[in-house]
């Protein structure tokens, strides 16, 4: 094969979204400014990030190219247990702030002081952000459908601002990668991604995610990822139905 990513040769000709730098004025054109913008004077808005402008039906956002994850209530994230207290697990959620998981928010009947029987240091979990306060202290819960300890699989990390691109509109992108590679994928809002399946397929899925990561600011990405996955069909196992 001539290139790892056949689509990548054409990147220079690809249309990109509007790129802005900190302090640049962003024309709102009647849309409501949401994330990544700040108000200057009466009705002028400027970008707070080096990133791309994204316009939806109602809102306008500036999405940074890189950046940290800030917990928000209701986010489904992937975290790593880094410390165990008498009644809480302290979880690293790939953010400036650590998060807490209280034993009563876990699906198990845990006795205080006996937490490491259920989750030990280094274990990964998918959890939901239960609440967050003004000083960015947050609490997690495991009590919801699909939330659990992650066993096996591979964890990769991407920049949190790129998560929406990985998921795609209504999950199209991640579902396409899942279906094509026959892997199980959980994307955390905080930029950690858990992938499980045969090793070869996991590798292809990681490459596909890399591709999305590199070209997140371009338009027409879904088609290129599809082409990439098609080109990799021979390298994966179990793709006959």
């Amino acid at each position: 094969m001539s290139s790892l990513f056949p689509a990548e040769r054409r990147v220079n000709e690809m249309k990109t979204r509007e790129i802005v730098l900190p302090g640049d004025e962003v024309r709102t054109e009647g849309l409501k400014p949401r994330n990544g913008l700040y108000k200057v004077g009466e009705d002028k808005f400027c970008s707070a990030y080096f990133g791309t402008v994204q316009r939806s039906d109602q809102f306008i956002d500036v999405v940074p190219f890189w950046g940290t994850y800030m917990p928000r209530r209701g986010d489904r994230i992937i975290g790593k247990v880094i410390e165990i207290g008498p009644s809480m697990w302290i979880v690293d959620i790939n953010s400036p702030y650590t998060s807490l998981l209280h034993m009563n928010d876990s699906p198990w009947r845990v006795n205080a002081g006996d937490l490491k029987r259920y989750l030990n240091i280094g274990d990964f979990i998918t959890a939901k952000v239960l609440s967050m306060n003004e000083i960015k202290e947050s609490w997690l819960t495991l009590k919801d459908v699909g939330l659990r300890k992650l066993e096996g699989g591979t964890i990769i990390s991407i920049q949190a601002p790129k998560v929406p691109r990985i998921i795609g509109k209504g999950g199209t992108m991640v579902n396409m990668i899942k279906d094509a590679t026959r892997t199980k994928i959980i994307v955390g809002q905080n930029g950690l991604i858990w992938i499980d399946g045969p090793q070869e397929n996991v590798m292809v899925a990681i490459d596909a995610i890399e591709l999305v990561k590199e070209q997140a600011h371009t338009i027409g990405l879904t088609d290129r990822v599809r082409a990439f996955l098609d080109s990799k069909k021979g390298e994966m196992v179990g793709n006959t139905e």
Partner: peptide, 11 residues
């Protein structure tokens, strides 16, 4: 700092 993706008002 802009490269780190930290929100800033200006350079």
């Amino acid at each position: 700092i802009a490269d780190a993706g930290i929100p800033m008002r200006d350079f």
